[in-house]
């Protein structure tokens, strides 16, 4: 009896040592939020306006991959688009209507991601705006970002072109002079390796 209990207890001790203390590798999927802001300076004496720019996410995503020690990037998706009026030297009371549009090609076609309806420039100065997003524009951005998903990055192979265009309204003068900063929030999911002890 004593011998049996001794063997059982020692066996339990060894089993515990092996199970409770054993380490295994885990590939944990970790999201990182990254944003990129692009200021567009609109300056015109006409009522219609248009300014455009280009964004290549390769450098940002590579830097995140390095900093976060990602083994690989699983997905890169759009989480949100906002805009902020940084400066406004337009005529007082200027209202604008228009669009923030995106395309995978400089020549288009451009798809709307944000509609600017009766935006009072004086009222939004310095305040980040989180507008409703249009599915067509979101799809264009996610498509442009899809090359980063699931493997090694291709530098500069795909760019995102964007523009803001519209018309001024409700102002005695049509002088437009403002900087609109468009901010895109990217949700980047990568894989990190971590050692954890495993048990039963």
């Amino acid at each position: 009896m004593k011998k049996t209990v001794t063997i059982l207890l020692f066996a339990g001790l060894i089993w515990f040592s092996l199970t409770a203390m054993k380490c295994e590798t885990r590939n944990v999927q970790v999201p990182v939020l990254h944003f990129s802001e692009a200021p567009l300076w609109v300056r015109t004496s006409e009522s219609a306006f248009q300014q455009s720019g280009m964004y290549n996410a390769s450098d940002d995503i590579n830097q995140i991959k390095e900093e976060e020690e990602f083994l690989e990037i699983l997905t890169v998706n759009l989480q949100s688009v906002t805009y902020t009026l940084r400066t406004n030297n337009s005529s007082p009371g200027t209202m604008i209507d228009g669009f923030i549009e995106v395309s995978e090609s400089e020549s288009g076609p451009y798809k709307t991601v944000v509609r600017l309806d009766d935006v009072n420039l004086d009222a939004i100065l310095g305040v980040e705006q989180a507008p409703d997003l249009n599915a067509e524009g979101v799809e264009v951005i996610n498509s442009a970002l899809s090359i980063f998903s699931g493997g090694e990055l291709t530098f500069g192979s795909k760019r995102l072109y964007y523009r803001v265009r519209g018309t001024a309204s409700s102002s005695s003068s049509t002088d437009l002079d403002f900087i609109l900063a468009v901010k895109i929030y990217l949700n980047i999911v990568g894989v990190v390796e971590a050692e954890v002890p495993t048990g039963i």
Partner: peptide, 19 residues
Amino acid sequence: GQGGTIYSFPGGFDMNSLG
């Protein structure tokens, strides 16, 4: 979310016991 935007939460460490 809206328009097909995506929000992600982190994964865990897949543990069946804590030792």
